[in-house]
Design a protein around this nucleic acid. Sequence first.
RNA 1: AGCGAGGUAGCUCAAUUGGCAGAGCAGGUGCCUUUGGAGCACAAGGUUAAAGGUUCGAGUCCUUUCCUCGCUGCCA
Length: 570
Amino acid sequence: MSVNETKKNFITDIIDAHAESGRFDGKVHTRFPPEPNGYLHIGHAKSICLNFGIAEQYGGLCNLRFDDTNPAKEEQEYIDAITEDLRWLGYDWDDRLYYASDYFDQLYEMAVELIQIGKAYVDELSQDEIREYRGTLTQPGLESPYRNRPVAENLALFEKMRAGAFKEGEAVLRAKIDMTSGNINMRDPVMYRILDAPHPRTGAKWKIYPMYDFAHGQSDSIEEITHSICTLEYEDHRPLYDWYLDNIEIYHPQQIEFARLELSHTVLSKRKLIRLVQENHVGGWDDPRMPTIAGLRRRGYSPEAIRQFCDDIGVGKVKGVVAFHKLEYHIRQHLNKTADRVMAVLNPLKVVIENYPEDLVEELEAINNPEDESAGRRKVPFSKVLYIERDDFMEDPPRKFFRLAPGREVRLRYAYFITCTDVIKDDDGEILELRCTYDPTTRGGAAPDGRRVKATLHWLSARHALKAEARLYDSLFTVEDPEADSQKDFTDFINPDSLRVLDPVFVEPSLRHAKSGDRFQFERLAYVVVDPDSTPDKLVFNRTVTLRDQWSKARKKGGGQARKKKGGNR
RNA sequence: AGCGAGGUAGCUCAAUUGGCAGAGCAGGUGCCUUUGGAGCACAAGGUUAAAGGUUCGAGUCCUUUCCUCGCUGCCA
């Protein structure tokens, strides 16, 4: 996997500056800290590539740490899925798999320490009262009446919280910082709350759980992380991150914030993704239309393409929206080099070669991947009755349509030149089949007399073709930003044609033993992947992405009949 | 209004830290082609949000203004 070793950005600038000043002895140790409350998505991939990538770039290490401080939301299913996706993306953390919950005992001791030095207190204000006392963005907050309890009382109360003597919401442990701070995170933030929920890892041992802010920095510290990279919305939390570390007086990593990925034509918030799943707008977390890693995998995306994409978009502090077509660019780029070409006909039109012998079957040689000679060659059977794509024939073709038409000659890829001699229709005028003749001297697709044709068509021998199912996926949303309209719900913009199932379609017999996850290019159509729903009797193909299509682009622009604007004013 | 962050090509990012504003993608034009794919070539795209200042020299430093985003969970 080629990674740009010299890729520079504002984070590497910071790291280089640290190396210069000697702050971390030139060491680089990062971590990827997902909360196991959902599946990983393409936005996480950016963070993953960043954290693991930077560690690799500097010869350092990157830990995997599950940020599991809220048992009300977290599940083992997500831990397993996240682990699988990370491995699939190609990352490895050796034995450095950690959980914030591993540190619950130490965190508790740190809290006790802060109480002892008078910097934390047990507050018995209700949740609503705490909100009122907090003040607003423009007005300072008020100190809680419980703020100045004696240390001994705080210690006893905190112990009672731990022992389960309070119910949820009856008491919290707060840091004693500054209720007038312009940064609301510093207005005596909650350190511990009571949660009456079993934890996936610690079970019923704890009744109190640390908040993110009280767990994250110390976890980084315990693991001796040097650079704690997170997204922009934690900028306001950095003073608190620093405050805990400084007051507990332990090793102090550097938090650095970057702009999270925004992608057009999709949503990336866990809240919205979970709604797509729960409201059955999609088939699950791994639905090929989902921007999750599992979804992209099932869609046919490769780890290489995702990593290249992340490398391409870079990292900065400016929020922006990356066009979805950029992701598509990278998967095309990778699959063009690696995917074997095969022929498939999605919408068949029967073609009878009138001058071809009735029972003859020829095995014609086809190139598996013109971009990769080592992919080798295969045989494709040719016979008298064929299928071609219905779109590849027009009875009355417009000017720039180069494919088959009455009287016109085209090439069948790797086979022969054929000429359309007749169009057979039913009573309604629907085209049933085409009659053609072939030129035996053009076997393999080259004309000895040097004459040329303007189009090359893919085809299948009708009696050898395999039936299969094709799932044609398109963008899940019809608009660039489904969240832009505050009057409407993002689900209002779901594309009703985001999945079109074609059954049956026909594919060449060489595909008989294709396995789930195998990726191919259906020549002239699309890149596809074999779906896990496939059975030995019936393959199911998911369309990953279409090929770039100049013809349909030209057609959209006005059928190729370039015409000058009237009026002529500029 | 308070605190914080940010504004470089349509989009995503660079600019050797004060020294000729450059790439990739998208869009455009042409070439080539046994995928209308792939590939190749070329052109275009900018008042660096704005104004002022320092300087031989400013995207970069200073001042002011404008605009965008985040923050008032016992979520992360």
